[in-house]
Every structure is written in structure tokens, then in C-alpha cells.
């Protein structure tokens, strides 16, 4: 701003000096009035030049902006690619966040299940489903593989099984084998049902979203 002003003032001062020199340089007085008129016009032009410049620069600016929009299409495509890249990065980040959340949820589920039931969780997997419109995520499903702990829970289960056992042992050996497997499967189903219910209560999920696989202690080893 101050440079603009100083340049303007310098221009005016130098023009006035030039006018004075030219007045001195003139041969006679007859032409003096004409030259004075012209020099006065020049000085007025110099005084008005900032406004002039402002107007002209305004026009230039708009034209320049238009040109850039018109000719530099590459910049626009690069902008769109930048946007695409940012979208991709955003998606990657979302996926990473989702994965992290799934892992933590799985850890939590594992802990909770191990605390609540006397089972050993082999592996837990939590699937989440993110809602892009709302920007929220919810648990879509839980996969759980548990293994009953062999000591007291085995006893507890065998006690329940032994209650049932007399009812079942009626048939031949083969049926006994079958019933044992049935017993096992029923025990597994019982475990699965209980864990499923627990998870259903604690995570507010429907039953078909939870898949619990119970391994028999012998089978796991």
C-alpha cells in the first residue's frame, strides 16, 4: 500500500518537474499555453491513474480467473483425483477403524464370556456393519468358538448328564455310542444356547446373528 502511494506521489512530482522543465525549454510565450494544457492533462491523468489502474486490474482479475477455469482442465482433473484418493484413504481408515473395533469387541466378548461361563474361548470374531449414511456402526454378528474348561465345569456338566443318563441308556452299545454323542451334542447345544443368550442380552442381538461353536474337551485336544 505504502509503495503504491509513494510510487504515485513520485510519478506526480516527477511529472510536475518535467512540466516545469518544458516550460523553461519553450522558445516563446505564444506556445506556452498549449504546452501547459497538455502537461496539465498529463498530470491529471497521473493523479487519476490509481482509479484507472484499479478498474483495469479488476477487469484483468476476472478475465484471469475465467481463463484459469477455461484452459486449465488438468488442474480440475487432478483435483478430482485428489478427491478420489482422499475418498480411498477415508475408506481405508474406516476399514482399519472397523477392524480395530472388531478386534476390541472380540476381546471384550472373550473376556466377558470367560468371566461369565467357565469356558475357554478359543477364538472370537465380531463382525460389524458400518452404516455409511448415518456414520454409525453396529455389531452384525459374533462368531465364537468355546471350549469347556475341563475341571469343575466338566463335572457340572457330567452331573447334569448323569441325571439324564439313566433315561437314555436303554438301547444297545451302538445306541449308547449314539446317545453319548447325542449327549455330547446336547451338552454342546446347551452351552451354545446359554452363551448365545448371554451374548444376546449383553449386545442386544438376535439369535441368528450369534454363532457359538462348542468344542468338547476331548475334541479340542
Amino acid at each position: 500500500m505504502i509503495e503504491l502511494l509513494s510510487g504515485w506521489l513520485k510519478q506526480i512530482v516527477i511529472l510536475v518537474m518535467i512540466a516545469a522543465f518544458i516550460d523553461l525549454l519553450l522558445p516563446n510565450n505564444a506556445m506556452e499555453r498549449y504546452v501547459k494544457l497538455v502537461m496539465g492533462l498529463l498530470i491529471i491523468l497521473a493523479i487519476l491513474s490509481p482509479i484507472f489502474q484499479l478498474l483495469r486490474e479488476d477487469l484483468d482479475l476476472s478475465r484471469l480467473a475465467f481463463n484459469e477455469q477455461g484452459t486449465d482442465g488438468e488442474k480440475m482433473t487432478s483435483l478430482s483425483t485428489i478427491r478420489q484418493q482422499s475418498k480411498g484413504i477415508q475408506q481405508t481408515q474406516d476399514r482399519l477403524i472397523q477392524k480395530e473395533a472388531e478386534e476390541r469387541l472380540a476381546e471384550t466378548v472373550k473376556k466377558e464370556v470367560e468371566k461369565e461361563f467357565a469356558v475357554k474361548v478359543d477364538w472370537a470374531q465380531v463382525k460389524t456393519r458400518s452404516d455409511n449414511e448415518k456414520g454409525t456402526a453396529e455389531v452384525a454378528g459374533i462368531n465364537l468358538t468355546v471350549q469347556p474348561e475341563t475341571k469343575e465345569e466338566q463335572q457340572g456338566s457330567t452331573s447334569t448328564v448323569e441325571e439324564v443318563a439313566p433315561v437314555i441308556i436303554d438301547g444297545s452299545q451302538s445306541t449308547g455310542e449314539e446317545s453319548r454323542s447325542e449327549r455330547r451334542s446336547s451338552r454342546q447345544a446347551d452351552w451354545a444356547k446359554r452363551i448365545t443368550r448371554f451374548l444376546q442380552d449383553s449386545f442386544a442381538l438376535s439369535a441368528n446373528q450369534i454363532e457359538v461353536k462348542v468344542l468338547e474337551g476331548d475334541q479340542g485336544r
Binding site: 510510487g7 513520485k10 516527477i14 511529472l15 518535467i18 498529463l42 497521473a46
Partner: peptide, 8 residues
């Protein structure tokens, strides 16, 4: 020279 300085 003056005029060039004044950018007339």
C-alpha cells in the same frame, strides 16, 4: 530519464 523513473 525522469519520465522513465516515473513510469510515465
Amino acid at each position: 530519464k525522469l519520465a522513465q523513473e516515473a513510469r510515465v
